[in-house]
Design a protein around this nucleic acid. Structure first.
Lengths: 158, 158
DNA sequence: TAGTACCCTATCAATACGATAGGGTAAATG
DNA sequence: CATTTACCCTATCGTATTGATAGGGTACTA
């Protein structure tokens, strides 16, 4: 199940992708436009920033903007950041494998085999669907935003 | 995420599929063999029974057995019974559609469109993977991401 | 009719989820 | 410099779900 957190995150990033290049969008604007609780959105954008998907600009005229072109940001990476691994079971995850404690013979586990298949199908879609494709009328982003300053990137295990 | 409940259910049904035809298997046996808490398994089998996947026989020599051939029981129907709809978001579900309260324009919602796609991919696998197929490839050829389908089953609503 | 094994209701700890509160801090502007 | 703006951080909180357990009740069969 896609959490509300991830859903909000995708919607917010989509909104950022629609915004004119180089103009930060404020949290308040995003929250109002996309019907997302303000404080909740704050936490979501913070996570996305710590993972290098967006950057923030403080002070008057500040806000958030994408760090990469919209066609280089996939649903898969957004969901992994906000919801964790795609795989229905941890033992079928590629990016965050964890052995099942109750499974004596993993190679013979049919659940794992089927769920690995499901995971691959999901990843095949989500890792190849970008914000740009989801937004039909999107101005082609010519360049990657240049960093204002060094921002801390906090990696979470996915 | 596949719940433990659904995982247990699949494992239990797989065990029933391996049992000789016409001989009920007791809950205690299933619980011990598959490492499932006894009482938890009881609730799971009850649900599966109420949905017509298995039948139970009381008294001495009683237990559970499949009501249909193993190649006619899909992962999809087991998971839907025990975990609910496959779709990552309710508004993308085919069998249990629910409108999102915060979504003003569903036709334009990119999240819904992508998740519908994901749902279809998941259903395509899970509704065409049966207990019989999962049990076959135990000995050789492990962990190759190969389609598991061998038989197609007609289903009413998708 | 005794014993087996399913059947039902209730409870419970742990966790995750969604959301909110309140203040702190960096940066732009006059 | 001072002020405003808007991000940044920590803590909390109610609710729902999950996974599991307990204790009997009841139907069926040998």
């Amino acid at each position: 199940m896609l959490s509300r957190k991830a859903k909000y995150g995708i919607k917010a990033l989509s909104a950022l992708a629609r915004a004119p290049f180089g103009t930060p969008v404020q949290i308040s604007t995003l929250a109002a436009d996309e019907h997302i609780p303000h404080k909740f959105l704050e936490a979501i954008l913070l996570a996305l920033r710590n993972h290098g998907l967006v950057r923030s600009k403080k002070g008057k005229g500040g806000g958030y903007e994408l760090l990469k072109p919209a066609n280089q940001i996939t649903y898969g990476e957004i969901i992994r950041i906000l919801d964790g691994p795609l795989a229905p079971v941890p033992c079928a995850s590629v990016t965050a494998y964890v052995k099942c404690s109750d499974c004596p013979n993993e190679a013979a586990c049919s659940v794992r085999r089927v769920m690995k298949h499901v995971r691959d199908a999901m990843a095949g879609i989500l890792d190849h669907t970008t914000l740009a494709e989801a937004n039909v009328s999107l101005p082609a982003s010519p360049a990657v935003a240049e960093p204002l300053r060094t921002q801390r990137i906090r990696r979470k295990k996915t």
